[in-house]
Design a protein around this nucleic acid. Structure first.
Lengths: 142, 142
DNA sequence: CTTGACTCCGTACCGAGGTACAGGGTTTAC
DNA sequence: GTAAACCCTGTACCTCGGTACGGAGTCAAG
């Protein structure tokens, strides 16, 4: 069953501990007797993870699944929130990418006599922020 | 000094423990007497982190900074590698974004009588993978 | 009936990047 | 000269998503 869902057996137990899977009935030996559709649930979890949901959110989603239309609303809200989150992450990674490209480009610059332009540039980037000691600024640059 | 660099004092000590900052001289009281340019180093660390370098990589970069032109090459290689890494992360986030959008779109579909289309759809996504029980496939989909 | 592959349980650990706390010492401003 | 506000050390803890281990029981095949 673990193999079929593509996860370790330990992972299944972990999910059970976390409440993502509810405890399956046991055989008389104590072995877990998983319902057939548990495989689908595990795949659901994995899919949702790939879409950026945390396990806690997945848990919420799973509980929501047992509810009515109001819960469906909630599920959509959660998904929409994730979407925004993804958007901002993409934006910031893209910004990083851009900066890094520029940074690497400095390597083509004549390198004076001994300093690595890349590292110097990275240090230089930070200079801009000196004025920033007003608050406890956890600055997000862009 | 911690405030000026925008980090906790504890974080400074943490960096020192990790070897990112070398141990500063002490006043006779035992207090750390940071050199003026340590602030710049800390900002460098923070900048590099923002660009996706891990602290271990930053450490390498800092050591590289003391070296010659060969080390400069190495720094550029590291940066280039990071760039590729960023590219793939952006790609995968973008893919997630796309899927999530489509998923949310299913919410507009008529919802039968009681099932949340979003959750049903997420479950449905996983179906495609049933054939995948050949190896121990830790599948990377896309 | 034995052997090997599975499963059980509980607990501890990984890595990354810190944060928190306790129990002191020091500095600085009033 | 005293009180607040900083700094020191060391250790423990946090989140996240699992993985590993040990000692025992169980299942299926030969």
């Amino acid at each position: 069953m673990a193999a079929e869902a593509g996860v370790n057996a330990e992972t299944l137990r972990y999910y059970e501990r976390r409440g993502l899977l509810q405890e399956p009935p046991r055989r008389d030996s104590g072995y877990r007797a998983y319902a057939v559709d548990t495989v689908a649930t595990v795949r659901f979890i994995k899919e949702a993870q790939k879409l950026g949901f945390t396990l806690s959110e997945v848990e919420i989603l799973l509980h929501l699944d047992r509810g009515g239309p109001a819960d469906c609303e909630a599920a959509r809200a959660l998904a929409t929130e994730k979407l925004l989150d993804l958007e901002s992450r993409v934006a910031s990674l893209t910004a990083m990418h851009h900066s890094l490209e520029q940074l690497i480009a400095t390597c083509e610059q004549p390198l004076g006599n001994r300093e690595c332009p890349l590292i110097v540039a990275l240090g230089g980037l930070a200079e801009g922020k000196k004025a920033d000691l007003s608050g406890h600024g956890e600055g997000e640059g862009s």
